[in-house]
Each structure stands twice: as C-alpha cells, then as structure tokens.
C-alpha cells in the first residue's frame, strides 16, 4: 500500500471488522445466557461465535490502528 494522501482502504476494512467483531461477540455472549435468542446450531456448545467475534475484533483493531488516518495526514487512499 502506498499512502500519500487520504484514508487507506485498510482503515475502512479495520473499522468494519471491528464493528462486526463487537456485534458478533456481543450477540453470541447474549445467546450463551439466553439460548432462545438464536436458532439451534451444530456444535453450539463450542460458542464458536464468541471466538470468531474476538478474532474479528483483533484483526479489525490491527488494521484500524495500523492505518489510522490521523497518524499521517494528507495521504492518498490507495
């Protein structure tokens, strides 16, 4: 990625993944305590949604912080 002015695409990706991670983790934690919240799924005892949500948060944070636009002002987005 060459950044010379503007917001990097990786920042957009990081932001969206971070939001998705928060939503998925939150919804699956809620479902762990309220099983009627979601449909029954195979292997739901593993609470995979919580782990996947945490993964999305971690990946999202890496991109969000690494490509934050306020680090280098006036960059090109490509």
């Amino acid at each position: 990625m060459v950044d010379n002015k503007g917001i990097s695409i990786w920042f957009f990706i990081g932001t969206l993944l971070l939001l998705y991670g928060i939503i998925v983790t939150g919804a699956n934690i809620y479902q762990a305590y309220n099983p009627s919240f979601g449909r029954p799924t195979v292997l739901e005892n593993l609470h995979f949604g919580i782990w996947w949500g945490i993964l999305l948060i971690v990946v999202g944070l890496i991109y969000f912080i690494g490509f934050r636009p306020w680090k280098n002002a006036n960059q090109h987005p490509d």
Binding site: N28, Y30, G38, T41, E44, G49
Partner: peptide, 12 residues
C-alpha cells in the same frame, strides 16, 4: 452455513 452459523455469523 445454517448448520453452523449462530447470530451475527449467519449475517456475515
């Protein structure tokens, strides 16, 4: 997808 994906993951 329906077999494994819980709330949010199905949307994803």
């Amino acid at each position: 997808l329906a077999r494994y994906a819980g709330p949010g993951l199905l949307g994803l």
